[in-house]
Computed example of a mutant assay.
Amino acid sequence: MPLYTQIRSYIEDHIRTGRWREGHRLPSETHLARQFEVSRITVKNAMSKLVEEGIIYRIQGRGTFVAMNEGGEPLRYKKGASSAGMIAFLIPRLDNRFTMNLLRGIERTLSEANIRILYLSTHDDDQREEQLLQEAIDTGVKGIIIYPVDGETYNETILRLTMDRFPIVVIDRYLKGIDTNCVCSDHRGGAYQATEHLLISGHRHIVFITSLFKGTTSLEERLEGYKQALAEYQVPFRRQYVVESTDSMSFRHLLLEHPEVTAAFAANEGIGQKVIEAAESIGRQIPNNLSVVFFDDYERSEAARIPPTCVLQQEEEIGRQAAQLLLTLIENPQQPRRSLRVPTQLMVRHSTGRALLERRSTKLPSN
């Protein structure tokens, strides 16, 4: 058997017998060249023909993957018994105001189109996310809305669905290197507003506190908005003022080591509340000794002991736009991909105030 044909048969046999299922990453060209003792050109030619036939596909910088299921049927045409009028909504959890409002916006829009929602919780676990995506496809849903797991990697099923033009919309953050349909808040603009509010109030030593953000574009954009505001107000960016932690002890140490800090911008509501607690535990009063602003709001925050200054996201609007975009994709999967940005709003309450030094400068001299 010619070497070219041997390589082709080897790949096809692995797919046909189920050893390599849809989405499986094939061995590299270098590996196959060593295995069959041929040149990489021979391997490349064999694989190029399989790509042309739609049996495998390539992703630049990531490898070559199986494009069809064991029956030789393209993924996008799989049909399930319960496929009529249903889409899947994957989200890390449904335990806060933000995610509840997202679901409300999606549900209201889809109910008008007589489409039901299959709700699936990933618990911020990338393996579970991959599994649930495949289960949704096997069920035969018409489309998918997904709030991806945080991190710099994304699962290959999202890649495959996107490349195969399956109706899928990503919310909250986009996926780097992939032209995906997505609906997000204006994270950069919201962070700029929050930081500018502190700068206008006289603060010059402002820390940015976040969870690990590498690869999570929503958090990366919030950091960029923070840096942009500092630059436009000619305040130097200090790397030591960026803290990637959700540990209250880290906040306490930061404030003790940097007594000059007068304000904090937290990347989300949970971190913001921990910052307030940490500050008060070492005698820093809010907002007299430390101003705090954060992304997102929480239920009945206006009635809190210290009503927070925060960046409001339009969660229902994000959900509504994501559902509307998905409906158009179900009708026409080949349309150009779109990235939609929903504006944010700064809500100023009582957790921020004038910088302490500026407050002193405006005091009347004592007799």
Rank of each mutant, 00 (worst) to 15 (best):
I7T: 10
I15L: 06
R19A: 15
L26H: 05
L32H: 03
A84T: 14
T109K: 11
L110Q: 07
A113Q: 11
I117R: 11
D124N: 05
E130I: 09
E135I: 11
T139C: 08
K142Y: 13
I145Q: 05
R160Q: 15
L161F: 04
T162I: 04
T162A: 12
P167M: 12
V169D: 04
I171H: 02
D172V: 03
Y174R: 12
Y174K: 10
L175A: 05
V183K: 04
C184S: 14
Y192S: 09
E196Y: 06
R204Y: 02
S211I: 13
L212T: 12
F213C: 04
T217Q: 15
E221T: 08
L223Q: 10
K227H: 13
L230H: 06
L230P: 01
A231F: 05
E244C: 11
T246K: 00
D247V: 01
L254E: 03
A264Q: 04
F265N: 01
I271M: 00
E277C: 00
A279H: 02
R284A: 03
Q285E: 09
N289Q: 12
L290R: 03
V293R: 03
F295G: 00
E299M: 02
A304N: 02
L312N: 02
A323R: 01
Q324E: 15
L329P: 04
I330E: 05
P336Q: 13
R338E: 06
Q345V: 07
V348E: 07
S351F: 03
S351K: 06
A355H: 05
L357V: 13
L357Y: 10
K363E: 14
S366L: 14
